[in-house]
Each structure stands twice: as structure tokens, then as C-alpha cells.
Design a protein around this nucleic acid. Structure first.
Lengths: 208, 208
DNA sequence: ACAGAAACAGACAGGTGTGACTGTTTGTTG
DNA sequence: CAACAAACAGTCACACCTGTCTGTTTCTGT
């Protein structure tokens, strides 16, 4: 019966379409579970339930849990890059305001569930060589993509000798602060972020 | 029979001594397992094996896994503080050299298995309210202890208005960088650390 | 020395998650 | 439209972990 519950005739879907949708559903569900339950409590059962597909479908596309997670890593990386790039356009023209805006945008990214999911994977990869190998390759790409946008965003300062190390240190500080969300009160972390950001802006301003 | 395999007479141990040693063995083993296998793969079975005690002894001292981990949190915090304070003495008198040395010492601490274990707990606490509650109380103490040594180490600059936010940002950056060890090549992370540290020293020097 | 308590030892049962497996539906190819 | 392959559905068995329970040893107070 090629009709839905409402009687709408449903056109035949090609094999590729079918597999693409269920694969996407499974990968999205994996990331959601990662963000919600953490890697420690990530089970294929939960993923299957959330994705709304059967156990058989899951095992068909991803024979083992490792393959599912490994693919999810790639999927997540693409999403992170996308989220990052989407926050970049429409920036103020004044350079000072632009830097301030970008810092806040990066901070926002680090408060999203996508960062939580990524962090779960990073930590898990420490004790899981297979996962680590998957991550290493992907993170390389993410880092390169992120690094490549620097010069286009700040054409006038990107050539400064300290630019790259400042970017590195800034990103590290944001990551380290984002980590504190996990154990500290989120509001207190946000306060610390505003203080830290103010200092960063001062330092950047002095550099000119 | 109160003799060992070598025939050495073993003196009677008081109940308190007995329980203290096995408790310590269990807590140490828990932290080691945390560092080696990660929170996701932490099982009471492994802890018991590593501690060299029986399952019955474990369940006697820590009826549930949650209690074992919760106590291990406190145990770990004490160890971290101790490790941190132990690295502090015998510092150069020149302030510039002293800052440089301290930065390296803090970095070393963040490369130790104790940091790995702590990070496992932080990440796990995100999705485990019970664990989070245990951690919050303890981390508060750790933070206060660490903060309290600042003024004694740098009496002449600690009163500067930016001191606290600079310390915060520095610690955050170190944490964020340490995190990268989990996925990146450790050597490359160390290189980035040296670059970052050089920048930090420049910034601190400018502040004077 | 003896009774009771604390510490310790090890077996058992219940629950859960993964991978393997068999059967069914849907789409593709000639 | 027939034969084949891909996609999907769901059950089963095995392994593992936790908590409970019973029995034994070691200490302590009297």
C-alpha cells in the first residue's frame, strides 16, 4: 500500500533516497543521544528508538556500534563547521565591534549541544583507539576550515606575527571555559566569560 | 595464622587500619581505572581486581558504585591539590622566571593522569546529576585553594585589577589546550603550548 | 576466653546491551 | 513480470555488570 495514514498517495522512493533518510535519521539521533545521555550511556537501542527506525535497519546500515559512532563523528563535524560558518556572516564593519561580535558567536557555538556531543567524543577517544583514529582525521579538517576563515575575517591583522598564536590561545581559553559549564553553575561561567572577553579585547586593542 | 608466606610474623592490625588500607586501595584503584579506561568503562569488577581486594570488601565499604565514585571524587581532589601544591615550592626569585616556571608546572599538572581522571568525571557529571552534585561541592574547594595561593606567589602583582581575570583566562586556556591532547598528537599540542606560553609572558610583561 | 561486631570472601540472580541470525518488504534490472 | 538485491523488521543467545545474600575470618570489649 503506497499511501499514508491520511490516504495521501506516497510516491515510490528510490533505494538511495530510502537509505539516505534512515542513515541521516540514525546519525542525527546518535548525536542527539550523545548530547543528551553522554557517550557512556549511548546505546544503539536508544538511538534506534529516537531515530524511529527498526533495529534491523540500524544493523543494516551500521553493522557495529563503532561504525555508527565513527560515521556520526563525520556527520557531527560537518554540522559543527556549518554552524560555525553560519554565525560568521553579517558582521559589523568596525573592526573592534567585529572582533567583539565574533568572540560572542564563538562562545555561543561552544554552548550548543553540538559542542557537548563533540566533547563527549573527544574524551571517549582518549581510551578508544578506534574512535581516536576516526576523530583525528576529521578534526584536522575542522581545524583547517576554521583557520582558513581567519584571514578573510580580519584581512588587516591576520598578517601580524602573533595572529595565529593569539587565535590558538583564544580558542583554547574558550574551550577551557566551556568545559566549566559541565560542573559549575552556567551563569557563573557566563560571568567569567564576559570578564575574559573584556580582557581579550583589551589585549587585541593594545596590539594595534 | 598470623604469618606471611615468608614466615614473618605479622602483627595484628586494628580494624581501623584494615579498613583504611582497603578503602585507600579501592579509591586509588578507582582513580587509576578512571585514567586508564575512562568513566564509560569503569566497572566495580575492574576496580576490585586492580585494588587486589575481594568483591565483598568493596561492597562492604562502598555499597553502591555511586558511593564509590563519589568518594573517589573527594580522594582525587585531595590528590590534585596536593600535586599542585607540591609543584609550587622552590621557585626562582626573579619574578619573570618565576611566572615562566609556574606556567610550566601548571601545564605539567594538566598532563598527568590525575587530570585525565578529573576530566572524565567532569564530562560524566554533565549527564549524571548525582555525580554533578558531588563534584560541585568539591571543585569549589579546589578552586578556592588554588585561588588562595595566587597572592602568596605574586605578592606584588596580585593586587592589580586584572589579576584575577588574567589567572582565570590563563587557567582556561591551559585546560582547553590540555583537552586537545585527547585527540591531537601530544607533541603538536606541546608545541602549541610553548607558543601560547610565550605570548602569555609577553602579555604579563606588558602589564607591568 | 567469649560474645558480638566489623571486615572480608565469594556465589547468585536480575537486568541490559550487543551482535548474530532469520524472515519480510520494497525497489531495481533485464 | 520475474529474479535478484537492497532495505527493513524483530527475535535470540551470549556476555557483562550491579546489587543482594550467605558464610567466614579478624578484631574488640568485657
Amino acid at each position: 500500500m503506497a499511501t499514508t495514514a491520511t490516504g495521501t498517495p506516497r510516491r515510490r522512493r528510490t533505494q538511495e533516497e530510502r537509505s539516505a533518510t534512515t542513515r541521516a535519521a540514525l546519525l542525527d539521533a546518535t548525536i542527539e543521544c550523545l548530547a543528551e545521555y553522554g557517550y557512556a550511556n549511548l546505546t544503539t537501542t536508544k538511538v534506534v528508538e529516537r531515530a524511529g527506525v527498526s533495529r534491523g535497519a540500524q544493523v543494516h546500515h551500521f553493522p557495529t556500534k563503532a561504525e555508527l559512532v565513527s560515521e556520526a563523528v563525520r556527520h557531527l563535524a560537518a554540522k559543527r563547521v556549518e554552524e560555525f560558518l553560519q554565525t560568521m556572516p553579517k558582521l559589523p564593519s568596525s573592526e573592534e565591534k567585529r572582533v567583539s561580535r565574533i568572540l560572542d558567536l564563538i562562545w555561543e557555538v561552544h554552548k550548543s549541544p553540538l559542542f557537548d556531543a563533540a566533547l563527549e567524543l573527544w574524551v571517549a577517544s582518549r581510551t578508544d583507539p578506534e574512535l581516536r583514529a576516526s576523530l583525528a582525521a576529521v578534526e584536522q579538517n575542522v581545524a583547517e576550515t576554521v583557520a582558513s576563515v581567519g584571514p578573510t575575517l580580519f584581512p588587516d591583522v591576520a598578517s601580524r606575527p602573533n595572529f595565529q598564536s593569539d587565535v590558538d590561545a583564544t580558542m583554547a581559553a574558550i574551550r577551557g571555559l566551556a568545559l566549566m559549564r559541565f560542573v559549575d553553575d552556567p551563569e557563573s561561567v557566563d560571568r567569567r566569560w564576559r570578564r575574559t572577553k573584556r580582557r581579550m579585547l583589551e589585549i587585541f586593542a593594545d596590539e594595534r
